[in-house]
Design a protein around this nucleic acid. Structure first.
Lengths: 193, 193
DNA sequence: GTCTATACTTGGATAGAC
DNA sequence: GTCTATCCAAGTATAGAC
């Protein structure tokens, strides 16, 4: 799933810039020229590292998923109860949304899905499935050990929590007064206590 | 807020096509050429009705908000309890998301907010505030009359419900197995019974 | 690996005839 | 109101020198 070729230092800076732009203005909102300006290289040089825009998009999502997966593993190692783990999970999104300019890479790409290259879409889908599987497992453990209480199935709660957090970033962009992922997550979790 | 000039038949078809495209591929994902093909007119003719792309975007959101507002009023007239009203509200989104190709106009534009004309953003913000105000009122009434039970404030629950439903459409696009707005709404509401 | 230069295409927008 | 024709800028991508 993540063979992710080694990236040269220049390629890394390009991926950094691309992720930044995707979170800010979306895949259809940036061009190689923007990347070029951000990294101080010419367009042709960017193309040398990533032959097409789709290649670049795939690289961004692969790395993003990879990093996210590492964060999820870290949470499980560090925190021992389901409520704590789920709160830390919400904080991952809070962090991304904090400057209010950004949104989850895959939240953005999920919205744009109908105009993306299939290769990019496949990576986005992988990201969501990765998240849903992790949430389901954490929630299932919580229900079993009674650190969480709910009449619903773990898989349903997982989809709810993910949708809530993704939606929180989206709505929070247009309505500054709205609560962020962290507070909405807390409210959700308080219903499972 | 919605002086919305009268739209000629041709202008209406253009707005229809533009809304369709925004829900499918987003504001940055369509061009006047796409509109042109959809309505069977030349680009220049489209420009005659809407001088700029931003003008067209504003017209789409104004009409969308206007129609949505009418639906909300209809719900209040038709249904008398808060749970019923909130369920009907979720169905409005379910309807838009049903063919899985579409997403809420303002969910999409909210994601793209950093690359939109300020005039379009203002309309999107208006849409969300309209929705939040309606939800807050309905939920407040429900809490007062005990058809809803929650330790949280109506305004917090309103943001939660809106974020959940917007997120549901977004996630549902990439993960077909995910539950839609209706089922996620039901799950949310079951926690307030 | 990076550059200049350049195709080629699309996108937003306007002028002016009908 | 709609059309043809056109402008100019931007976007993706490639060729070939350094």
């Amino acid at each position: 799933m993540h063979p992710q070729k080694e990236l040269s230092p220049s390629a890394l800076r390009i991926v950094d810039a691309a992720q930044d732009l995707i979170q800010e203005v979306g895949y259809n909102g940036f061009s190689f020229e923007h990347i070029s300006q951000a990294v101080g290289m010419r367009k042709a040089s960017v193309h040398h590292h990533f032959g097409s825009k789709a290649d670049l998009g795939v690289a961004v999502v692969q790395r993003y998923s990879h990093q996210f997966e590492a964060s999820l593993q870290q949470i499980v190692v560090t925190l021992k109860t389901a409520p704590e783990r789920l709160q830390a999970y919400a904080d991952l999104f809070e962090k991304a949304a904090q400057n209010s300019k950004y949104i989850c890479v895959c939240g953005m790409l999920g919205a744009e899905t109908n105009s993306l290259d299939p290769a990019v879409n496949a990576e986005v889908q992988g990201f969501f499935q990765l998240n849903l599987a992790w949430l389901r497992e954490v929630i299932q453990e919580g229900l079993s050990s009674c650190s969480l209480r709910s009449p619903h199935q773990a898989s349903e709660l997982a989809v709810s929590y993910l949708s809530l957090l993704e939606g929180a970033m989206l709505v929070g962009r247009s309505v500054p007064t709205a609560m962020g992922p962290r507070r909405l997550g807390d409210l959700f979790l308080s219903g499972l206590a």
